[in-house]
Design a protein around this nucleic acid. Structure first.
Lengths: 188, 188, 188, 188
DNA sequence: ATATAAGCGAGACGGTACGTCTCGTCTTCCA
DNA sequence: TGGAAGACGAGACGTACCGTCTCGCTTATAT
């Protein structure tokens, strides 16, 4: 049991590392499960047993990347975690999510393509959405916070980030998102 | 450049009609170019000659669907066309685009998947983006209208529309978008 | 190198059987890889994985057909195998090869068309050529046996065989080849 | 009427020149009728009007190349033409045909592939075959001259010529053919 | 000079093969 | 005997090709 777990963990890591290498090399289309398995020196079946599908693999990688943020948002210290005013938490959250997105634009694209239309049911998406909704509601109970949350999350698209990120200013996108959020929060 | 040959036009139409039939029947994944060609009673080569790729085909269909709006926005009467106040034009435009999107959510999804990350360079996207940017700038020159325009357009995602449209209220999504736009325009 | 998997072998056989059925049904042009795969109840990829290309498939079939002769010539009893006088071995070999060719004229044509000009580098061709050369050299060291071997093998063309085989005398072609070989061997 | 003929002749020549340029450039597979038409600056329809098919085009080119030999063999002076002893005519003929074949090995391959199995009914082939048969019969009425003629003609295969022609000795193949023919003629 | 007719370039078309690729399943085999 | 390796089915994609067919310009004749 224990040895087996170690194997599984090693494989899991190998597959994820292979995936990110392929992502870095050739973009989202470069990540085929055959290639991932080959690069990870693992059978294709193993990839599926661990991750279920291409979408699952990309999702797992994305969750690995954003696990810390999720933790910080739930249990961490302010301003990310509970305790700070909603406005500050919102800005901090967008900063954190933006950083992840900027660093993983290619992965984001690939995940978006793979998940197709299940994207909005994804637990991860739902978590971000709930969090955003709550913060927005706190500041602007008069607005449709749920929809606004979708609106803000819709910005976190790999293609858009690549399109908007100028060379030399990797945080440009995040600041734009934050400004847009502020424009939404500002009461007329 | 010679004009499109008569039979070419006929085929173009047949292919587009076949595409929409397949989209309606079985969703985006049902639209394979082989099937399109077969249903249109056209050689596979013809589809590729006209549309270049799966993405090109879906794009063409989408442009056909939105051609009227584009025309109305450019040369039509107010409030869509020039002449009305920017705020009214914006609402009218979002109404028009929302209607198209609500009616073509499946197509939108399929297109989004196929176009991958070239989406933001697409002439059609750029047109909508320019238009939105101009209207937003007119109302709120103090904001980053270009980014807000991307933000609003990011909402027009097939999956999100399906996710948010309740049975019995097909225009719900559009109204939400309009409200979000108004929230952005309202000066603090 | 692992041994061929059991299912791989099964599929290999199924594909070859499908190929020969299609050859028999409708001639060489009837053998498309799509059809072969469909008839063998096998994915198209499997055909390519095993045989690499149309040419490879036909070559494999041909080699299957001539494997026994190859074995008999190498290790079998005289007069085909080693031990008999060269003249008798030559006649026996031509008889064997002629029989195969007469029975597989259609396959021969198809293979000739598909292999294009790599024909003379093909291991199978080289084997027959070496064998023939050796036998001819033994009998007529004064002649260019290598060239004569090419000359004799050039006769084994599907189209020529069909052209020369009268109804009711399927071995006519072979006897002609043998007589021509004898004419070459006969010393002036 | 007369002007039209001029056009037709010009086009015919342009198409043949284009064909040979493509043959020279990239081998037989490079000669697609689309490319021929484009290079000849001629409509594709014109190619088909003149030559009927890919095979017809290659045949026409081949006949252009061998027209002189045909004429010389029929009406020319000895030893090619009538008047010389059969043995000398045969050698002269093989020399002439060999020269053409050596210079047009690629064309020969392409023609062989295109004509598939109609090759032996081709008027040109039949002419060479009749001529060879007659000469062989004259020398060796005891042999099956018709078959031997096929045997000799079977040597004129583009692939074989390329395979056997060493760099620096372009007539090697022809001499080999002549020696083989002599070996056949030499009475035991 | 105008109208009609023929012919040709250009190339689109239908149909289809090829070979590559992908996913997710499923069989086989090894440890 | 349980899980890793990877072959498999299914089928899409995009390209190429052939031989046919359509179109519309250009020329050629007829009025």
């Amino acid at each position: 049991m224990r040895a087996e777990r170690a194997d599984a963990a090693r494989n899991r890591r190998a597959v994820l590392r292979a995936t990110e290498r392929l992502l870095a090399e050739g973009g989202g289309d470069h990540v085929s499960l055959d290639r991932v398995a080959a690069l990870a020196e693992v059978g294709k079946g193993t990839v599926f047993r661990r991750f279920g599908s291409r979408a699952g693999l990309l999702r797992a990688l994305l969750e690995e990347r954003s696990g810390d943020l999720r933790e910080a948002v739930t249990n961490g210290p302010p301003p990310l975690g509970p305790g700070a005013p909603a406005r500050e938490r919102l800005l901090a959250f967008l900063d954190g999510l933006g950083l992840i997105a900027e660093r993983n634009a290619v992965l984001l694209s690939a995940h978006g393509q793979a998940c197709a239309d299940d994207k909005y049911g994804d637990p991860s998406y739902r978590f971000w959405h709930r969090h955003l909704s709550a913060l927005l509601t706190a500041e602007r109970p008069d607005l449709d916070a749920g929809f606004l949350a979708h609106g803000l999350l819709a910005l976190f698209d790999g293609g858009l980030i690549r399109h908007l990120t100028p060379p030399g200013d990797p945080r440009h996108f995040t600041r734009s998102v934050q400004r847009m959020a502020m424009a939404l929060l500002d009461r007329d």
